[in-house]
């Protein structure tokens, strides 16, 4: 039994407390890690890699990181060859995908969610296509926009070059594995996302595909099966054309490489810089 009744709570004049404090995730102090990390591969993931590198090196001043990009497939290739510690790749290169066999012994570490969009030149006159229509256009069966609800004009198909992670994902997720045309008067190939953006913006009646982050108001981001390519629709599961971005490593990562991957996967980076670069955090896809 208490020796006195309930006390009146006193408010301390100096207390400015408003709301509860969140749980603290402490920032690590400058670490003892050292060494060099070489990252190569996906051009889509390069801005992410460089931003994370800048932040990570402040916590680990004696770790050097170099980053380069020449298409997703060169990531796991460089890891297998032993000239890179991390292969940035837009698909899980430890498994077989259309056009590429799996890279034995490599581990796929998820770092981001990358949405992709089918895009068309503003002149095409369509706002959306079905999966079947996309398959027919990219395989060359349908050659005129009027056959899919657009104007009477030849369709110009713009494709990414072999080795592109965006191409692998678009083929797997949007075309459900059907083949691309690879030649013809109304067929173009481009080497990067930047080139794809320019091609679609400036080529009348063109169609292509791109990372959602590159979509501009000078092109039409097409609905697929009546679902718009938006971050919200990726997260709610209604839009299927997306993939994880991976950091491929030779076996499980160790040392500075492991710490760097863990930094990118951290809540601080995922909710901060990664979101600002228009990627979707891994935790959003639970």
């Amino acid at each position: 039994m208490k020796w006195y009744g309930k006390l009146t709570t006193l408010t301390l004049a100096a207390t400015l407390l408003l709301g509860a404090a969140g749980g603290g995730a402490a920032t690590a102090a400058a670490s003892k890690l050292s060494g060099k990390i070489v990252v190569n591969g996906s051009s889509a993931l390069l801005p992410l890699t460089l931003q994370a590198s800048n932040e990570f090196k402040k916590l680990n001043p004696k770790v050097r990181i170099s980053a380069s990009a020449a298409g997703s497939v060169t990531g796991p290739q460089a890891v297998r060859k032993g000239i890179a510690d991390i292969g940035a790749c837009d698909w899980d290169a430890s498994t077989d995908v259309p056009g590429f066999s799996k890279f034995d012994g490599q581990v796929a570490n998820k770092v981001a969610v990358i949405p992709f969009a089918a895009i068309a030149n503003k002149s095409a006159g369509v706002s959306g296509l079905t999966t079947k229509q996309l398959q027919d256009i990219f395989s060359g069966k349908v050659k005129n926009w009027k056959d899919v609800g657009g104007k009477d004009a030849d369709i110009v198909v713009v494709n990414r070059a072999f080795g592109s992670g965006t191409r692998v994902n678009f083929q797997m997720k949007a075309l459900q594995g059907t083949d691309f045309i690879t030649k013809g008067d109304n067929y173009k190939e481009v080497k990067s996302s930047g080139d794809m953006k320019t091609a679609i913006e400036t080529t009348p009646n063109s169609i292509g595909y791109i990372d959602l982050v590159y979509v501009t108001d000078k092109m039409t981001a097409l609905k697929i099966d009546n679902v718009a390519p938006t971050t919200d629709n990726v997260i709610n599961g209604s839009y299927k054309v997306w993939s994880y971005g991976y950091f491929m490593t030779k076996g499980q990562p160790t040392g500075a490489t492991k710490a760097f991957i863990e930094y990118i996967q951290s809540a601080k980076f995922q909710n901060g810089s990664l979101k600002k670069l228009k990627f979707i955090p891994l935790t959003a896809m639970k």
Binding site: V38, A67, G71, T74
Partner: peptide, 11 residues
């Protein structure tokens, strides 16, 4: 300014 590395790859 950070420069990305230069990659040579024959596709």
């Amino acid at each position: 300014v950070v420069k990305a590395g230069t990659v040579t790859a024959d596709a």
